[in-house]
Each structure stands twice: as C-alpha cells, then as structure tokens.
Design a protein around this nucleic acid. Sequence first.
DNA 1: CTGAAAGCGCTTACAG
DNA 2: CTGAAAGCGCTTACAG
Lengths: 339, 339
Amino acid sequence: MNGKPTIKDVAAKAGVSVSAVSKVLRDAYGVSDEMRDKVNAAVKELDYRPRTAARSMRGRSYSIGVVMPGIASSFPTQIAEEINDFFKPTPYQPIITVGSGMAKEQIEAAEALIDRQIDGIILISPWMDIAWVERLATRIPTVLVARNGIGRHYDSVTDNAFEGALAMVSHLVELGHRSIAYTSMGDGGLKRPYVLSHTSRQDGYEYAMKMHGLKPRTVISAYTEDGGYRAGCELLDGDEPPTAIFAGSDIAAFGVMRAAYERGLRIPEDLTVTGYDNVFASGLHGVDLTTVDQSSNRMGRTAAQLLLERIEGRTEVVCRIESPKLVVRGSSAPPAKRR
Amino acid sequence: MNGKPTIKDVAAKAGVSVSAVSKVLRDAYGVSDEMRDKVNAAVKELDYRPRTAARSMRGRSYSIGVVMPGIASSFPTQIAEEINDFFKPTPYQPIITVGSGMAKEQIEAAEALIDRQIDGIILISPWMDIAWVERLATRIPTVLVARNGIGRHYDSVTDNAFEGALAMVSHLVELGHRSIAYTSMGDGGLKRPYVLSHTSRQDGYEYAMKMHGLKPRTVISAYTEDGGYRAGCELLDGDEPPTAIFAGSDIAAFGVMRAAYERGLRIPEDLTVTGYDNVFASGLHGVDLTTVDQSSNRMGRTAAQLLLERIEGRTEVVCRIESPKLVVRGSSAPPAKRR
DNA sequence: CTGAAAGCGCTTACAG
DNA sequence: CTGAAAGCGCTTACAG
C-alpha cells in the first residue's frame, strides 16, 4: 500500500472483508464486538479516513450547502471573498469552512475538506503547529495567509506586521507620546519564526519602543471587543495610565475606547487609541480610528493565485509579504499637557 | 432514464460512446467538431451536469478548500456561523459558498454545491425566483432564510420584518416625529408574497405611517454605506428634509449619517437616524444607532435544525417567524423645535 | 454475523 | 477520431 489508505487496506490489515469494514465504519447493524475492535484498530493504525466522494456515489455525502451573499466585513471574510472572486472565472469552486481560533477545530475543518477530495487548500490565520501544516502540504497544494515564516512545502502571504506596528509607534512618538501601551493576544504556543501576524505586530511594537528609547508595556488579552475592554481597564486603572493605547486589532481598540469613555475620558483629547486592521467600522464617523491597513484587498487574490499555480504544478516555495500602510484618523492626537 | 441524467444518458441521446462524452466535457484532445456538437446538444437538452464526486474518484474535484476563523460580523455571516455550530456535533459538514446579491450568481453557487452531492442546502437571502427554488426543493432538502412566503417543498425562517418596521415607526412617532423618510432597496423583480425581508420592512413602514395618518416617503437605493449616503443626500438636499430618516439597514444608516454630518447636522439633535439589523458597529460608542434586532442569533440554528429534520425524512412544510425587537440607542430623539 | 459481487458515475489508458 | 473495458473507493443487496 502506498498513498492514502483505502478501505481495502484497512480490510487487509484487519484480516476481514471490505464490506465488514464498511459496516463498522457506518455503525451498521450486525457486527460482532471482536470485528469492530479489529477494524477500529486497523483504522487507527493506518490513520484511515473514508473519502466522501466515493461514499456519496452510493450513500450520503454528509455535506450541507450554505449559499450566502457577500461577506467582506472582517479580515478573514474579506480574504475569503477575494479568493472567491479570483476563482469565479476558473472551473474551481471555493468551499469555505469555518473553524474557531483554535488549532483543534481548524484541523477538523481542514480534514473535513480533505475528505471531500479538494484539489488545494488555503488556511487563513491558521493556529496549527507547523509540523502539521508541512505534512498537509506534502499531500495537497497549500497556501497560508497571515502566518509568518517560510515553509518547505507551502506558500504564504502575509503583511509585514513588524513594519506596520513600527509605523504606528513612530506616528505616536511624533505626536509627542512617551507612554504608549500595547494590547496583544497569546501566541498559542506557536514557535518562531512560524507565528501569526499578531506576534509579529507585538515584536514590531516592542522593537520600535526600544528604538525610541521608550519602555514597552504590553497587556495580553483576547482580540475581541471584550478583550480590549479588559486590557483598557487594566491600563487606565493602573498606577501610571499611558497617554496612548495601541491595540493590536481594531476590534480590541473598540473595547479600549469603551473603557475610556466609561471613565469619562475623551478621545483623542485625554487619550489616544489606535488599532490595526482597518475594518469597516473603524472608518465610521464617531469611531474614526487611526489604524493600520494591511492591504488585505490584495492578500486574498494573491493567495488564490499562488494556490492555482501550485495546483498546476509549481513546487518552489513562494512567500509574499505585502506592505501595510498607516491610516491616520481622528483618534490620535498629541497627549494632553497634564493629566 | 429517470432521476438526474448521467453521462450514460448523454451518450445514449447523442448516439456516441460514454468516453466520447467524457472527452468533450473535459475539452480533451481528439474530438471531431461533429462529435462535439452532438454531445453539447445532448448535454443542453438533458440539462446534464457531471457529478463532482464521481469525477474526483479519478481526476480532479475542482474544489478549493478555505479554512477561516470565526466570521460573525454581519447578518449573513452570523447566520452561517450558527449553522456551523449547529452541525459541529453531527457527522455533517457545512460547506459555505459565497454568491453576490444577484440571483444569477447565487444560482451558480448553489449548483456548484449540488454538483458536489450535498445532502441539503440552506439559502440565505436568496434572490432566485420562487419557481427555481421550488424545483430545487423537490430534488434536495432546502431551507430558506430571510425570505417571506410559505413554500410548497421547502422550509423557511424569517423575522417578522413588518412588525419590526412598525415598531420603529411607532418609536419615532412617539418621539414626536411627523416627517419620517425611509430608505429601501429594489425588489429585484420578486413577486409577493415571496419577497426578501427588506420589502416586508418597507411594507411595514408604509403601513405604520398611514396608520398614524402620516405620508410615507421612501427612497430606493442600495443597502450599502454608499447607497445610504446617496439616499441621505437626496432627502437632506430636498425641499422638505425629514426630521427622521429610518434606513432599511444599519449599513445604509451609516451612509445617511455621513451625509448628515457632511451637512453640519448633529445626530440626534438636528436629525434622527435609525437602522435595521443591529450589526456589531451599531453598538459602538460614537455610532450608537437606534435599530431593530432581528434575533439572528436564533435564525441560523433554527434553519440548521429544520434542514436536519428534512434530511431525516420530514416532508411537511415548516415556516418559522421570529419576532424582532427594537433597540433604542442615542441616534433617535425628539425633533428640534424648529429648523 | 460475515463476505463475494455488483454497481454508483465518472476518467483513463488502450485498441481499433 | 472513436469506443469497449477497467478502475477509482466506497455501499448495498444478497448469499452463506
């Protein structure tokens, strides 16, 4: 046996018939416990997974279709929409699957797709450890979005988060801020240099602070409105509240703003708040958040393009790094003379 | 031949071999023009589409996998995420596909899924005409979200948009407004009662206005920030600018707000602006939009539940209508004494 | 309870 | 250029 194991391989290893394996797999009526155990052992040993395509020729595909209108409203959805647009004129159909921000769920989602015999896969902000990704990439054309590091078998598209964070800190320092805090999130156990963008943003922030002779001050919490709120509370209620808070994502910045308003602070008069991502809501009047745009409008297309090239045979690794740009709006201003 | 046509049926109809059909389909080398024409005619006549599952057993699946982290940031994405959560503990895997807000693209997206042998399909805000949907529903379990009317072969989940719009108008009238304009979007040629939610919102608005003895005034434009902006400009630059603008969607309301601010108007002192949907951004400090929440947090799960029941054999039609609720925030207030 | 055989709808060498 | 046959990896009656 070579390549992905089939039901035949399982049957051979377990020393039973193919139909018996099929029955155990489908939990069908009429199998002895002994048979079940033997088959399950063989399945586990071979790491066997039934192919949905073969299955659906007779039985069910266990696939549910969902058709929805456009979705470009956050970084991942924007990327997904561009991928979709890119493949429209080709015979390929993107099928999207949603995991959470956890490695385990993302692996499950990816495997569900592989069971469906996809020709290639794009992972957006993937939390899986790099060994898993490399293994995946030896089996199927793979492109990663928003994950740093150069792979051996896959392509990647990232923004230069280090540079983006650096630009933001420089902007704040130029305005006169000296006490600039940063909110980030945990690294999820990912090891350098194969980290997600936010780690690289944090690196950029810390590097820039030191470069300007300032002391970095990072609070770790979630990249959610609530996470930002908690980080904001911690910073603003502390001994020496900063004059500027650079949130690692716009969503978190919204939470920081809430904490600030709750304390009667005006933005930007009393406190400067900035973010990263340039999501739709950041541009709204009344929000007007200074942020960094990671040019996600190109990242999705680039990822799709790279995947297509791989499907068509390219094997050399390509790693594209887009340059982010600072978007200055009304939430940043010089610090108040005294507090 | 009965059921969906196969390559065999095409071959029989065209009077050629199965392999010949396969070659024409894949544009492979070595087919005469005559053969090509015969096959294409048969394909068209039978409305044949190759099954991706069978295809992928030897060749390509023409499916691209995209794995992305959570996406609940707009009405459709929120629905999609809940569907996803619902199926997590089941053996079914939702595969999401993105169309635009146009019937043609949505049909293409749906067909791409059917080619992949899905067991059931959920359509979110579908623009296809009802005959197409009914035909689909006779072939495969189908559930519609946010589309009015009771089907013969499919289930549906909607919010009571009429009631929601009515509640909003009553709120505005209670505040003292008499001149309340509304922004909607086109009906896309859909015929009553099988309309999308926004038509029903408009009906509710117009009914409520008449009920209060007021003259309805609706501007049609897109449900986008820009569409709202254009509608806002039209209303505010007109002869008798309204004291309140009820936008048919939050996104459009953001555009109306931009038009207002651009003209130096304060919200809510000089102009009341309200929306519908209660998207994330509406709750942000500085936006603080009065709106209607269509309890989309239940709609997705309900749709998934109904689909599962259909897959498992139910055939009676179920139509669930959720009650929306008014969310009063800072963008609505009594009209200025004089303008 | 277990297994040999047919078949799902395609594609792919291989003859003709 | 065209077609008969084998095969992809499963499931499904059907015997045993």
